[in-house]
Design a protein around this nucleic acid. Sequence first.
DNA 1: TGATAAAGTCAACGCTTGTTGATATCAACG
DNA 2: CGTTGATATCAACAAGCGTTGACTTTATCA
Lengths: 200, 200
Amino acid sequence: MSSERSAKRSGRRPGPTTTREAIAAAARRQFAELGYDRATLRGIAGEAGVDAALVVRFYGSKDGLFQEVMALPPAVAEAMAGLADGPRATVGRRLAEVIVGMLENPQSRSIVLGRIRSASSHPDAAALVRELVTRDVGRLVAALTDDEPETRAGLVGSQVVGLALARHVVRVEPLASLPAADVIDYLAPTFQHYLVEPLR
Amino acid sequence: MSSERSAKRSGRRPGPTTTREAIAAAARRQFAELGYDRATLRGIAGEAGVDAALVVRFYGSKDGLFQEVMALPPAVAEAMAGLADGPRATVGRRLAEVIVGMLENPQSRSIVLGRIRSASSHPDAAALVRELVTRDVGRLVAALTDDEPETRAGLVGSQVVGLALARHVVRVEPLASLPAADVIDYLAPTFQHYLVEPLR
DNA sequence: TGATAAAGTCAACGCTTGTTGATATCAACG
DNA sequence: CGTTGATATCAACAAGCGTTGACTTTATCA
């Protein structure tokens, strides 16, 4: 019905609208909104305008789809790692800006929310959240201090996933409706403390 | 509906091992470990040693079972509200003690984890988490300050659910293996800040 | 005792899920 | 033309789910 093949072969660099990508986008949206269990192959395929069997043909299985579609865009990981270069006295605020910004952008929010929302029921998703904390946050902390860096990364990560859950999943008010700038103001001191101040 | 047989055999006041309670205990355990979707009536009934139909007969439906079994024991709510009475300079630490303690005790941990783990997929569970934050944490904050108490409660709540998720669901190391006393030390300044210090 | 209601089991229902194999469509290329 | 390989649909599968109604067992009490 809606097969838009305007430019199929020509050298479109970012390859904008292949069917495969339409499926990936629909999958990200539904995994983020419903979690792994409630998101169904039929629902995802329907949103992408194709048959469920085609999803399996492309991605092998529902698990394969989830894994492939929930890869964190490298830009976020780089942004976090780059934070260690700036002034140490304001690193907490800059991290808050990156985190809140990541949750405002629809693309990266889908991925992070999909991971967190699915972590409760899908072991692979839990592993992806663990990786987010230990690897991406961990790299930043390791560049900042030698004093219990893994513990600090875990504390930062706990506040990150807690914010995502409270603000975007459970929608605790007024936290859910607060402007991003306010949330950054509120979180900055906490991150600053977890990152560089004496822990106890 | 729930005809309470006050004394059927002898005057057992705490009535420890009725079939109904065995089902409730199994349900709490499985909701906390698997989340609402992955926990099944057949699995819960099996752990309690009865047939799945009996669970429905007692609790009406899976939703009814969840709601009835996930009620927060009043002791926790009271402990949190009572925190406002002590010295204001250490209220953050005392809250950290209550929160971490609540997550160490198997009974209350099952309830809190069951709520949080199910919040991702079950709207009613999300409402229960919201209630935990706005009502139980909210009461404490309201007794402490008039400066944006709902926002402060939301921030505290976000760190609470984040800790529960990171430490007990996703199991981020070393956070998951840390002694409770250490976690209390680490969280106390954050709670102190969210509760009574100037927010920005 | 027998009546009565609760406690408990059993088999089956309707439905949804992920996955599969057979089949159709269609552009590309010899 | 015909073959090929990717793209896509369709119907069906086996399994698991919550829920239901009929049934048996057990215990209480007039």
